[in-house]
Amino acid sequence: MVKIRKAVMKDAKAIHLIIKERTKDAMVLPRPLNSIFSHLRDFYVAESDDGQLVGCCALAISWDYLAEVRSLVVVPEARGTGLGVDLVNACIQEARELGVREVFALTNIDKFFAKMGFTETDKNILPQKIWADCINCPLFPDCDEIPMIIKL
């Protein structure tokens, strides 16, 4: 049984490691450990019965009533079990509780997000995101990620 919960201090290094592994295939952007610590409250983790982290996802407030689901990672041995859906749903639930009206993701797995109710959108509606994070990405401005959004 896997439990979805908010991240705590002891999780930061494990979150950093599973994100780092996933950056090798360019599915998520790298996050320095100091960034994980400073944004720890954004993260949800999936923890197995033996206490190992098998996934993570973060909800980052971007702008007025707008938030982003980011750093979604499920370790290879736990993929296909619904953990990704559970992690994104935890973020969406928190977004609703905060009064967020729209949640977006920049993703290479658009079919996954489409099944969850996200629709493709124009990246130009996300100017704060583009200039805050994307400008530092090695793929900028030739990003291959698809902007997806869901209205809550």
Rank of each mutant, 00 (worst) to 15 (best):
A58R: 00
P30G: 11
I36R: 04
L98A: 10
I92N: 11
V100R: 04
K115C: 02
E120H: 01
L72T: 02
A12G: 14
N89H: 15
A78E: 07
L83A: 07
A105M: 00
C134W: 12
T121I: 00
R79W: 11
K24A: 12
E47V: 07
V75C: 03
I150D: 14
I150Q: 13
V69F: 11
P127R: 09
F112S: 05
H39R: 11
P147T: 04
N108V: 02
R41Q: 06
E47M: 01
Q93W: 15
V100I: 15
V74M: 06
W131C: 05
G51E: 06
I109C: 00
G84E: 07
N89I: 03
P147I: 08
A105I: 01
C91R: 09
Q128H: 03
E21S: 10
R22S: 07
V74L: 09
I125D: 00
A58P: 10
A132E: 11
I61C: 06
V8W: 14
T119C: 00
E102T: 11
P30A: 07
L87W: 11
D25I: 03
D86I: 00
A90N: 09
E94R: 15
S35P: 10
W63M: 05
M116E: 15
D50T: 08
D25W: 05
I61P: 08
V54C: 13
R96E: 14
M27N: 06
Q128S: 03
L98W: 14
L29N: 03
G80M: 08
I15A: 12
L83M: 08
C137W: 06
F113H: 04
V69C: 15
R96Q: 15
S35G: 13
L29G: 09
G84L: 05
E94K: 15
L33S: 09
K13W: 08
R22T: 09
K151C: 13
S35N: 15
E47H: 09
E21G: 03
E21P: 00
H39I: 05
A7C: 15
D64Q: 14
G80I: 06
N108G: 01
F140W: 10
A90L: 11
K3M: 04
